[in-house]
Design a protein around this nucleic acid. Structure first.
Lengths: 332, 332
DNA sequence: TTGTAAGCGTTATCAC
DNA sequence: GTGATAACGCTTACAA
């Protein structure tokens, strides 16, 4: 069994409480001498605080529980954890992530997390979406990250998709592009909002989109089959009014758009500028040419979530939209 | 404060112990009637087991602590967690990951993890590497995942880089390729071992490599600058004895090799076959043509690690190498 | 089958 | 400044 306060107390010839004060009681008044001596003994013995014991006493463990709606598999999704972790650490807390995979429902995972008596609980989605949380569960969750609770019972942090689309579209316009097409993600909330922002930005500038195409996600077919994006873009480039810029629903779509443009003998950005969303660095920085894209505010969402949870600022169930950041590379 | 066993006991008119038996004492003998009644009350009251309290009693929390040497940022690295998580869950345990980022050293993170009194601790590296663990820390760590402890004091699980390279090279040879070049990762253990397997496979078949080039990692320069891989491969293709296959150090290198080949007007796999390592799906499946690559055994390492930790089979500090899996797409 | 008492390591209360 | 003592919620040992 690990060394405990009483082991130290015995060795130091003082009471347990004194040891506790010396090691953990920040401002408890005691002689510097005693304190130093006790700390020395603790060090010698290899004492490590038992947070479980402290947890019984206090009613909670210094943990921020995170329920992730899918296995945290996408590279930028881990940025959410990174943000949470940084902010949590400042408060001497740790992040405890639990994945909601397969058939497990939110209720059972939430209970699993609650068994550990975390100080606060967040719910994080891997893709921006709407989530339905049963009323009794909503009470345990302090903040929703990258998703919105349908009933609006829980504070939510989401990326400002519409604003980002507006911004990147303005950027394309500022670069002199006028005939802009949008190859969108089908059936995703993010895609819907991005499209809205795109349309608004064009309308504000007095232009009309050349085309808005739904991208067919390769995953629907197979890992190996070519996606329909290629055909769509090929058709687009055969039109008389071919675009001079293509905005893509995300970086993965952009990767396929690049393939299509290449096959059509179109140069980027000479003939057609390309821009996108997500800043999935592995892809965006290695495409040829490197892709200009709007970076998702995942880290910021994580950090803000932790700050809200720990400061108890999650009382009002407001929806906060965080801005993307434009990452300029050379595809425009 | 949350509802406890005594709340249930009071309501049920029985002792705390009886409630404990009813809810947690799997085979404890008691009337089905009482048990059902108690469970009903627990349900009504919304009872959630307090693992912190149980932990004080037992001396440990049902956690597998994982110390990750870098922020878990690479998409396949999360597979390690996934593997651990699956196996841990079978044993009613949870995985508790702690990142070793920035200036924090292993000792302090290890202590941070130990404060939570996990049942077992694993150390996971994001890239296959050699790790030096101070002797006193090595004792707390049960297994090393994706890395090897220099002193050989701790059981280690690593990918069989050499075997994978041997296998994929044989695969290229079986496809009729004879003039194979290798664009390697510089300064990485994985690259070194992969190169060794590559050389051996060619030697076994009585061939010699056309060229072995160190890839210069783009990250060393900047997110936006082109990598030297492009120049290297261009030079390679201008040679009289140009290769009919290129094996790449990993999928990201392959992505740049694709760019270089494309610029050189070389078709894949018609003129040159390409194969690689990692199976970073986002990239490999979306390249044009989709990339044949050896998938890292991250999930298997995670699962095996958890099984070893929980069965106490980590006593012998042996090094186990797990096989990659060939994922055939259409670049060969 | 159920109850009682003790103990896990910590912190809080209050007395000295 | 320091020390008893109780308490947190749970499990174990033992008694009924």
């Amino acid at each position: 069994m690990a060394v405990s306060l009483s082991d130290i107390a015995e060795r130091a010839g003082v009471s347990v409480k004194t040891v506790s004060n010396a090691l953990h009681g920040g401002s408890a008044r005691m002689s510097d001498d005693t304190r130093a001596r006790i700390k020395g003994i603790a060090e010698d013995l290899g004492y490590v605080t038992n947070l479980a014991a402290r947890g019984v006493r206090q009613g909670w463990l210094p943990l921020i529980g995170v329920i992730a709606d899918e296995l945290i598999t996408s590279p930028f999704a881990t940025e959410i954890i990174r943000g949470l972790d940084g902010a949590a650490r400042s408060a001497e807390m740790a992040v405890f992530a639990m994945n909601l995979s397969g058939t497990r429902n939110v209720g059972s995972v939430l209970e699993e997390v609650r068994r550990f008596r975390p100080r606060a609980i967040a719910f994080a989605a891997m893709y921006h979406k709407t989530v339905e949380l049963p009323a009794e569960l909503a009470k345990s969750v302090g903040v929703m990250i990258n998703c919105r609770e349908v009933a609006g019972r829980v504070a939510s942090l989401v990326p400002d998709e519409e604003g980002a689309a507006h911004e990147v579209t303005r950027h394309l316009l500022a670069a002199g592009r006028r005939r802009i097409a949008f190859v969108n993600l089908p059936g995703l909330l993010a895609g819907e909002l991005r499209e809205k922002g795109f349309r608004n930005a064009l309308a504000d500038a007095g232009h009309a989109p050349v085309a808005i195409l739904p991208a067919v996600r390769r995953a629907i077919y197979s890992d190996r089959a070519p996606s329909l994006v290629i055909d769509h873009v090929a058709a687009l480039m055969r039109r008389g009014d071919r675009p001079d810029a293509i905005l893509c629903g995300n970086d993965r779509v952009a990767m396929e758009v690049y393939t299509a443009l290449r096959r059509a003998g179109v140069s980027i950005p000479g003939d057609v500028a390309v821009a996108s969303f997500d800043n999935q660095v592995e892809i965006a920085s290695r495409l040829d040419p490197p892709l200009t894209t709007m970076a998702l505010p995942h880290r910021a969402m994580g950090r803000l979530a932790a700050e809200m949870l720990l400061s108890g600022a999650c009382s009002s169930p407001e929806l906060r939209m965080l801005p993307f950041q434009l990452v300029e590379r050379s595809s425009i």
